[in-house]
Amino acid sequence: MTFVDPATYLQLLGLVQNSIIAAAVLGIVGGLIGVFVMQRDMAFAVHGISELSFAGAAAALLLGINVVAGSIVGSLIAAALIGVLGAKARDRNSIIGVLMPFGLGLGILFLALYPGRSGNKFGLLTGQIISVDLPQLGLLIAISIVVLVSLLVVWRPLTFDSLDPEVASARGVPSRALSFVFMTLLGLTVAVSVQIIGALLVLALLVTPAAAALRVSSSPVLVPVLSMIFGFVSAVGGILLAIGGSLPISPYITTISFAIYLVCRLVGSRAKVAR
């Protein structure tokens, strides 16, 4: 592994500035939505959605249309299927288990048929943010901001519905509508993540930060704040490290996010012993 000299690094930094912004926004949104992914026990669903999102993106690549749009279509189809057919946890897991290999297989088929460069091909599976062009980056950032704002608007009822569904429903929280909104937001976030970190590694930004935060706190304020910070540090830290070397970005992001999780586990178990 070789590192570039500081002057070149700064130059590179300027070039990838927009990618860094996209990663930062995604880190924050992923950390936030991850809190609900954990509360609603949807980690497996995230994985399932990302495979169909990958298939959608690959299809778009093959057809020569907007890859982000393809990714979103795939995501939303998966999110809708899981939301409609998998209201119960057990049904949900089997539906996801069936969808996942199908999506992945479709995606691989489309990539195999795609005549373009192979670098593009695997980018969708393992991350490619540096090669995303400027209009697309703008789109990713815009989607992330829409998700962020929507999440804040539904935050309290969604928390109520996720953690205390019987009472929430009795209190008039519209649980079906919220579940639909949540699956849509999750689908959008996954579609953005697939572009940045790759379909196979989406969980590193949508689950690991929240899981880490939950190890060290049970405060409904601190958990999302920490999760957001963890997501941000993983995503931005990953890019900053990657541009200095010759390795791809994704392993840096996944390693940072995993390291944060390990530290939180350690801190969490210490705190429990001390109590």
Binding site: V35, Q39, V153, V154, R156, P157, T159, F160, L163, D164, V167, A168, R171, G172, V173, L214, S217, S218, S219, P220, V223
Partner: peptide, 17 residues
């Protein structure tokens, strides 16, 4: 991720968008 007081808080404002 709920402390005792958070459960009660959900009863007070949990339904509010």
């Amino acid at each position: 991720p709920l402390r005792g007081r958070d459960l009660v808080m959900l009863g007070v404002n949990g339904q509010r968008f």
